[in-house]
């Protein structure tokens, strides 16, 4: 903690000034926590990883200009912290899931027949009024459950894209993916989410 804040230097210290913006920092922390929970599924360990990542981020905060670059970097640190935590817990399968992009197509190919057409039971139905679902608290519980059900790599990339709001180039650079790889992963994540929401909410969940 530094006691002196010199506001005149805000422009030079973009990254650092972000860390002096309590609201921004809290929002970022919440996003990181969501992300960490998704990967570790242990609230305490997730909190620790976020804490350490933020401390790590503060050390070099002033070398980052824009918010999105800063965010990318903070999440890169967080990802490595999470991998450390998983390694300590000897869950190597999860580490490789976290750090690599698997080309596992099994679960998805079951949605389609050999010619690539929907299996009758997997054909998507109409969802009705989405805005109406959003007003129901239970919808958000189901939605988060479905996000949690995504495989690690898909969850990470999908969250980076849709939740953190990173653009294609940033994610590809960060994850060492080609644009086409990224689109394949997002496609898979969306197929899974669509299926999950349909089963748990739009078809069956509502009457519960």
């Amino acid at each position: 903690m530094t006691g002196s804040t010199s506001q005149a230097k805000d422009k030079q210290l973009d990254g650092a000034s972000q860390l002096n913006d309590t609201n921004y920092l809290e929002t970022l922390r919440q996003q990181m926590l969501k992300f960490a929970n998704l990967q570790i599924s242990d609230t305490h360990l997730a909190e620790d990883a976020v804490q350490e990542a933020l401390i790590g981020a503060m050390k070099k905060a002033d070398s980052f200009g824009g918010r999105s670059a800063f965010k990318t970097w903070v999440f890169a640190i967080l990802k490595n912290k999470i991998a450390d935590v998983l390694r300590k817990r000897q869950r190597l399968a999860e580490v490789s899931e976290l750090m690599r992009s698997d080309e596992d197509d099994e679960a998805l190919s079951s949605l389609f027949d050999k010619k690539g057409h929907w299996n009758p039971e997997d054909r998507p139905n109409r969802w009705g009024d989405p805005e109406d679902s959003f007003k129901q608290q239970q919808f958000w519980v189901v939605f988060e459950t479905c996000l949690n059900n995504l495989p690690g790599n898909q969850a990470k990339v999908f969250m980076m894209r849709e939740y953190i709001g990173l653009d294609t180039d940033e994610i590809c650079k960060e994850e060492d993916l080609s644009v086409s790889n990224l689109h394949v992963i997002l496609h898979r994540a969306r197929l899974k989410l669509q299926k999950c929401l349909e089963i748990k909410w739009y078809d069956g969940g509502k009457h519960a």
């Binding site: 054909r123 998507p124 969802w127 989405p130 679902s133 958000w140 849709e162």
Partner: peptide, 16 residues
């Protein structure tokens, strides 16, 4: 239906 659920999904993520 899948195509229209893509828009719902994006809106839901924004809400989330």
């Amino acid at each position: 239906n899948f195509e229209s659920s893509m828009n719902t999904l994006r809106k839901a993520m924004q809400g989330f």
